[in-house]
Design a protein around this nucleic acid. Structure first.
Lengths: 289, 289
DNA sequence: TCAAAAGTGTTCGTTTTACACCCATGT
DNA sequence: ACATGGGTGTAAAACGAACACTTTTGA
């Protein structure tokens, strides 16, 4: 091992990898053991957004690694996926930003370039557990949103709510106010990883906020080939920490410049009127930022 | 000098510092010598956006420096302002992103975290020239926009035009297409600095795109204490590379949640009906992201 | 039969866009 | 007087939010 040059900071990548679990996924007791322990085992979470964590020195943390001399930031991210998490599927990683507080790592001077991505739970589930205790931390769920809405009397003033913090706009022109777990002194993860998750989540929300195809942005067909509109809506609501109206959402998605198209099929596997199935209108490859 | 550890990348900061010059500023022949030489000395640029550059090994470049072990990214940025450019005024710096191509620096492996900011020309003008030949490169001007609009038959499809590239949205849901100088093989600055300027400019545009106070975001009262609406509009149009309608702009700015308020004064220093003067409605300090 | 979920019609208010016109000053 | 830039009125179009209603299935 070479001597560390203390006059220059070292460079690391930490990874906030999101995944979405359905109620059915969470019903599996083996899965349930790996998620945030403070969540009551009997609570009904509904569709839930999680972030992949592992065991750190003092608590849970995001997976990370130092950047090596020959690789780009993204390469270091892929190396974490492969070597630390054992994930082989191709995933799109994007930058969150740099985290550079001088004392953020108590042992040495490390600046982290955090990245984020999304992985389908079915591609992740076999990697859970193991030596590094790879697990999941709850970021958001219908339940978290509903509970927050009940406590605050609605979500009108808030533009996104999650377990890692929220943002709201008290005066339209003056800027937003954000409240993070780090502001409350009740950290969920080690070091500054709570902030990383919060800012990663904000990027995730942007992916769903605009008119662009969010799955193209994520690089993953998170809902599979075909899906109901209501599934897409629930996914978006949980991913963004908001609640949209059913009819508004439908009409927005059905306008001709939308990123989904009707298949001719319907799905009547659940109660109620059979739902039309939709699929992405463009292939995933060659996405632009 | 300590041996460089080649197994880890070094970390640098490069700075894209924007400034806006009026027609009057450009009339000064001493200033004119320091700006992009390929711009015809007699052309009428109008209000123009520039970025601060200096002499590199093979051409012009952005000012930069390696990050030291004890400092944050922003500190390195401030050190560049102070030690490289000789600027003492307080400026708000923001991150653009990381530039990490392995071969971006031909001599050694350096990852750059680019930052950007805005400085008033009057705070900058005395630093121009000197040993490092600190100068200015044109990013955008009314003329560039008008010329582009004339060539392309309007700006409707484009969401921002500049000398360093532009973006447009051919199909609303499929994403944007961007065209940079680097795509055309006609670089203006060394290495990947053209890209830095382009992405910095995009961030600048965002500052003016939303409902928030852009000057608060920049941390600079770029137009001084009081200004005409038309000055603000021209500033915004050039900063964003767009053309807005006079009456629409006015009504947007005059809505009660805007970031400016009327002073009771008027200015009749120019031809035409005297213009009402406006000022920022909130102090600059304590801005949020 | 009824609860649950899908899907549609209609209204109303706000925002965006465009166009036209009036106003006050320097030259 | 008139060109120049400041400022306002109005109306169509587009968009978003809300509400109520119909439809079709599984339980």
């Amino acid at each position: 091992m070479t001597e560390i040059d203390q006059s220059r900071p070292q460079l690391a990548v930490d990874l906030a990898l999101f995944t979405m679990l359905t109620e059915a996924d969470l019903a599996d007791s083996r899965v349930r053991e790996l998620v945030s322990p403070e969540i009551k085992p009997d609570s009904e979470l509904g569709l839930s957004l999680f972030v992949v964590t592992m065991q750190g020195k003092t608590g849970r943390k995001l997976p990370g690694a130092l950047v090596e001399g020959h690789e780009q930031i993204a390469d270091a991210g892929y190396r974490i996926l492969r070597e630390v998490l054992g994930i082989e599927v191709s995933i799109r990683l994007r930058e969150i930003g740099t985290f550079d507080k001088v004392d953020r790592d108590p042992n040495s001077r490390v600046i982290s370039i955090a990245s984020w991505g999304y992985i389908r739970f079915l591609d992740l589930v076999k990697m859970l557990g193991g030596r590094d205790q790879v697990g999941l931390e709850l970021v958001n769920s219908s339940q978290v949103i509903n509970q927050f809405a009940a406590e605050q009397g609605g979500l009108e003033e808030f533009d996104g709510v999650s377990r890692f913090g929220f943002r709201y706009a008290p005066t339209p022109s003056r800027g937003h106010v954000k409240q993070l777990t780090s502001d409350l002194g009740a950290l969920i993860l080690e070091q500054d990883h709570d902030q990383m998750v919060f800012y990663a989540w904000r990027k995730l929300r942007y992916a769903f906020g605009g008119k662009l195809d969010p799955f193209r942005y994520l690089g993953v067909k998170a809902l599979g080939e075909e899906f109901r509109l209501s599934d897409l809506q629930e996914f978006q609501d949980v991913a963004c920490g908001i609640k949209t109206h059913r009819d508004q959402f439908r009409r927005q998605m059905l306008n001709p410049s939308s990123f989904i198209v009707e298949t001719k099929k319907t799905d009547s596997s659940r109660q109620g009127k059979p739902a039309a199935l939709y699929t992405l209108s463009a292939p995933l490859e060659a996405g632009n930022e």
